[in-house]
Write a protein that binds this DNA or RNA. Structure first.
Lengths: 234, 234
DNA sequence: ATCGTAAAGTGCAGTAACTGCAAAACGCGG
DNA sequence: CCGCGTTTTGCAGTTACTGCACTTTACGAT
């Protein structure tokens, strides 16, 4: 190998390795199924030792669904708080954006979605990871509710029950998490594709360059309209 | 032990053993924490071999959160479909009832709730197990929605979009799962807040014989009123 | 360019969850 | 009491994951 060791800084090298491992993990799982892929296989493909793998990722799952925890964008959060239009819609887009942001690589994102289709338990882990920032999101919702309540009632009088507003925010957040689940399910291509290992079909490279982005946005729009209609007639 | 061989039939013995293991598992986890309890410890306490343990329970988690999957009561389902009052409320009570039904033992139920308080990941597993019957519940909601739609529009004309109704039902189910999460969280005595005011001993052993049942119902009522208020003013 | 140091990578040994297999123990009907 | 099917068990093996000690590497200071 004529190339000397890459002159990259430590951090970028770390990131590169992490990305490489994640890609290999997702690829292998798509090929053979989650249970048939060992950590050692991922390590060999990624040219790192098993011990290093567990330095990068806390669990095998983490490498497949992604290591970085989701986080809320500052600007987006501020805008969300001070907005006054459809709360549910904005909350939902806020969270879907979060999910998409930590999968900046489109190929990796679509592949992960496919993995989720074949391994429902991983989907649940992902949603659980999302749930970890429930408190953050709840805080945002609370701030917005509080602001809105203060704006309508005026500075003078009607006592807005603070704890109730907190509860309301938390309830809303949990409910929207459920809706997010629903939307995420729509992103999965088709659950009736048997993940037969060594299948006769091509190795899955071709299917990814369809247009999934509009499909994702469409399904989100659909869910929103459905949600509005559902809530309008209880 | 000079005990004569238990005159129980095979099945009841099996059930008895399962219950005994579950109780020991929950007790040990409450005492030492989930990660500090090995399967072997549960086995020794329950006087079975490790291999038998895994014949009874698929995983270690299963013994702690309960083996039997939740299922919908026939009569209750029928009543739900043909009812016309508050859909969200009835759906929520339906699911909470399910959760409570598979914990017929009150002590075991409260202990499990405490375990969930100390081990959030187990709570998520439990909710995931709940999610497994999402399709069933969705079907119920769909049937109710369809019936209601048919009743209002009359047999003659307006075309009720079937797939849309299905989507609506699924969306609703997912959302209510989120609300269920919220309610379940309220059941947890959470951060060192004993269920009974005045008992400052807090050794964790005795606090269980308080009256948590009304508390559970109260929190459900609270959540419902919150939900109604939230949805009324979006 | 070289060197010292701290961080990153690695090997190894160990723990614990879980599985398959075959033998042993047991319950149940005859 | 006896055969027979089910349950339980021991045992060996796989795999995820961890702690520890050691080597390698990157990077700043000289």
């Amino acid at each position: 190998m004529p190339e000397t060791t890459t002159p990259t800084t430590r951090e970028s090298k770390h990131q590169a390795t992490a990305l490489r491992v994640e890609r290999n993990a997702v690829r292998l799982v798509l090929q053979h199924g989650f249970d048939n892929v060992t950590v050692d296989m991922i390590c060999e493909a990624s040219e790192i030792s098993q011990r290093t793998f567990f330095n990068y990722f806390k669990t095998k799952d983490a490498a497949v669904i992604g290591a970085e925890p989701p986080h809320v964008d500052e600007a987006q959060a501020r805008q969300f708080i001070s907005s006054d239009s459809d709360l549910l819609a904005e909350l939902l887009t806020l969270m879907t954006t979060m999910a998409a942001n930590l999968n900046f690589d489109e190929k990796l994102l679509t592949d992960r979605i496919m993995v989720f289709g074949q391994n429902p338990e991983l989907m649940h882990r992902q949603m659980e990871r999302m749930g970890r920032i429930t408190t953050e999101v709840t805080e945002l919702v609370y701030l917005r509710l509080k602001r809105a309540a203060g704006a309508t009632s005026g500075p003078t009088g009607s006592p807005v029950n603070e704890p109730d507003l907190r509860d309301q925010a938390e309830l809303l957040t949990h409910a929207i998490m459920g809706v997010l689940r629903f939307v995420a399910m729509r992103w999965i291509p088709t659950p009736d594709m048997p993940p037969v290992p060594g299948a006769s079909t091509s190795d899955g490279v071709s299917a990814t360059d369809a247009d999934p982005a509009p499909s994702r946005e469409q399904s989100l729009e659909h869910a929103l309209s459905l949600l509005r209609r559902t809530l309008r007639t209880p």
